[in-house]
Amino acid sequence: MSSGHDDGIHAAGVSKRFGSVEALSPLDLSIAPGEIVTLLGPSGCGKTTLLRIVAGLEPLTSGTISVDGLTPVSARELKRFGLVPQSPALLPWRTVEANARLLQDINVDANPSPLPDVVELLDKVGLSEFRSSYPHELSGGMQQRVGLVRAFALGAPYLLMDEPFAALDEITRADMRHLLASLCEPINTGVLFVTHSLAEAVFLSDRVAVLSSRPGRIVGTVDVDLPRPRVPELEDDPAFFAIETELRRLLHSGAGR
């Protein structure tokens, strides 16, 4: 394994321009191994762009990023990222189980060993009865659960989640963040979670970085010192509200220009 100070994701002075549009002004961000960090910001603030840059899917304009001492592109080639896109992006011709295995089936040379057990993961998210169903037979929430399993099944050291619950209704969203916390907590996986939901940010994260509207820059970082495992009852706790309030205040300060 790599040496101590290389561990984790370190972004330094990262910025991004699309032509004449400045999407991200230079920012620094670190994610320690096993740490869950949320990027919280209004839509269009560049948080998805930052996630894509970390994933090695988008070149950066300036700055450096290291992922356990590797460049994002090398890390991507070594399957170090489990991506959960905003739409579940399930392949309609594959069954639920085959979809959950998709990332294991591609670029197999870079698979870690042993690979997580897909059947066990599907069981954990309550989809064991639907293993041989097709995506069109599932509800939106169930489809996104397959999307989560697909990413976890990679056994990657980092998960990159791009507003995975944005298209779901409020009740399903709450279930999904509780489920995600229960999946993340027992394993030592670093998570970069992008959202515009305060509740998701507080419930899931160890740390929340708040982005301003475009060009995106980090207006503040909040440590979430709530006990783990996170349980749904926590969302009624005054400490939970206090952090939500702090984040909301930061969001408003970033929105003004």
Partner: peptide, 29 residues
Amino acid sequence: ADPAARELFASIHASRWEVLWRLRLPSAL
């Protein structure tokens, strides 16, 4: 082929052949 699925394939460095065989061809059926 679904752009989100293409991004997913890219995120684990799928080869051109894998994208063609496992994503583009079934999308063309």
